[in-house]
């Protein structure tokens, strides 16, 4: 059973960019939760980590926009953002090209993927990695879901992607982790930046921890945009993790609204059955 760890959490750039100016009592529960997640990832002794995130128009534009794209590189530069903004030093994150190719091959039995040997990692990957594998010593397979320009892949397809990933991962040797990042509700870099839709977040988290597929995928894109904000489309990453753990439930480690980071913050860890 090579999938040994599956979780989802946030990646908002404010987590590192605005940490110093955020009220400590607001953000402390978040960083404590991140540290617990860090410890659990370390304990999992991963050989590779498959990460699912959006791309924030750092690799992909509307001239060629895939619904899903997997990174086959043997390494990935990151972060793409300016160091003085994101406050994460530039580095090179090791990839796992053989694993990525094998996963892509099996996933494409049921879900079509684009692939690239030249992805760079933006805050969607680098903010979580900065805390969770701070030495960048776990090879990463990045998988991007288009959450920037509609039409977005349907929520049900994100769940199917997760199911396909699980089937593919389970055919591989080694200890493989899966981490979805993004969301929850937020209005990133927009006039409503800082708004957090607590009720919307909690409703989604209830559905995810119970792994109620139909409840997770019931939202229309317009409803997400209205109630969870443009950043709410990133629940697709969380849904993919739930799909990989179909038949299992999850545990909400914490949920806390983080207006200073302009996100609803949470960690959900799924049970691996």
């Amino acid at each position: 059973m090579p999938l040994v760890f599956a979780a989802a959490t946030n990646h908002g750039p404010g987590i590192t960019a605005r940490r110093e100016t955020a009220p400590e009592d607001e953000v402390a529960p978040f960083f404590e939760g991140f540290e617990r997640l860090h410890q659990r990832i370390e304990a999992a002794k991963l050989d590779a980590l498959v990460m699912v995130s959006s791309d924030h128009i750092q690799n992909l534009y509307m001239d060629n926009m895939p619904a899903f794209i997997i990174g086959l590189g043997d390494s990935f530069p990151g972060p793409t953002e300016d160091e003085h903004f994101l406050k994460i030093p530039k580095t090179i994150v090791p990839g796992a090209p053989d694993l990525a190719a094998a996963l892509a091959d099996e996933v494409m039995e049921t879900v079509d993927l684009a692939y690239s040997g030249e992805l760079a990692l933006d805050h969607g990957f680098m903010v979580p990695l900065h805390f969770l594998t701070p030495d960048y010593d776990v090879p990463v397979v990045p998988l991007i879901i288009n959450c920037m320009f509609p039409p977005y892949p349907k929520l049900g397809r994100a769940y199917e992607l997760g199911r396909a990933l699980r089937r593919a991962i389970d055919q591989q040797p080694g200890r493989i982790g899966l981490l979805g990042t993004g969301g929850l509700s937020h209005w990133p870099a927009a006039p409503l930046s800082g708004k957090v839709a607590v009720e919307w977040d909690r409703e989604f988290l209830d559905a995810m921890t119970a792994n109620r597929r139909d409840d997770m995928i019931r939202y229309t894109d317009a409803e997400i945009e209205r109630d969870g904000g443009p950043g709410g489309h990133e629940i697709r990453s969380w849904i993919t993790v739930a799909g990989a753990c179909e038949g299992s439930t999850g545990v909400l480690d914490f949920y806390t609204p983080l207006p200073s980071f302009a996100i609803g913050g949470a960690v959900v860890e799924m049970t691996i059955a």
Binding site: I57, E81, D82, M148, F149, P188, A189, A190, P230
Partner: peptide
């Protein structure tokens, strides 16, 4: 214009 382009 997508705000994710404007902010960086």
């Amino acid at each position: 214009v997508q705000p994710q382009l404007l902010a960086p």
